[in-house]
C-alpha cells in the first residue's frame, strides 16, 4: 500500500507541474507577438477602429469609447443595466469625469 502522504505529495507535484507548464505556455505564446495580434493591430490601424467587438447588442457596448455622453448606463457608474453586458462594464472614465474641463 502506498502511503497517503506520498499520494498527496505526488498529486501536488503533478498539479504544480501542470500549472508550471501552463504558465510556460503563457510565457511562450505571449513572448513574441503572434501574427494574429499583428493582424488585429493592422486592421485597427487601417480601418481607424476605436473599439473591441465584445458586445454587439447596443451601440454603447459595441463602441464603448465612443458612447454618447447621455446613454442610460452612464447615468451612474454602477446603475443597473438593461443588458447583461452592461453589468460587466464600468462607465468609461472620460464619462465618469463628465464635468471635468478639458483644458
Amino acid at each position: 500500500m502506498t502511503r497517503k502522504s506520498s499520494v498527496f505529495l505526488s498529486a501536488i507535484a503533478a498539479q504544480s507541474a501542470i500549472l508550471g507548464l501552463l504558465l510556460l505556455h503563457a510565457a511562450i505564446s505571449t513572448r513574441t507577438h503572434p501574427p494574429e495580434l499583428t493582424e488585429k493591430r493592422a486592421l485597427v490601424k487601417a480601418l481607424h477602429l476605436t473599439d473591441l467587438c465584445l458586445f454587439t447588442e447596443a451601440r454603447y457596448t459595441r463602441h464603448l469609447s465612443q458612447a454618447d455622453l447621455s446613454t442610460p448606463f452612464q447615468d451612474h457608474p454602477i446603475s443597473l443595466e438593461h443588458f447583461p453586458s452592461g453589468s460587466f462594464l464600468g462607465a468609461p472614465e472620460n464619462i465618469r469625469k463628465i464635468n471635468e474641463e478639458l483644458d
Partner: peptide, 13 residues
C-alpha cells in the same frame, strides 16, 4: 483607459 477599466471589480456582475 476605457478598456483598462473594463471588467472592473466594481462592475455589477
Amino acid at each position: 483607459r476605457t478598456y483598462d477599466s473594463i471588467f472592473n471589480w466594481r462592475g455589477g456582475m
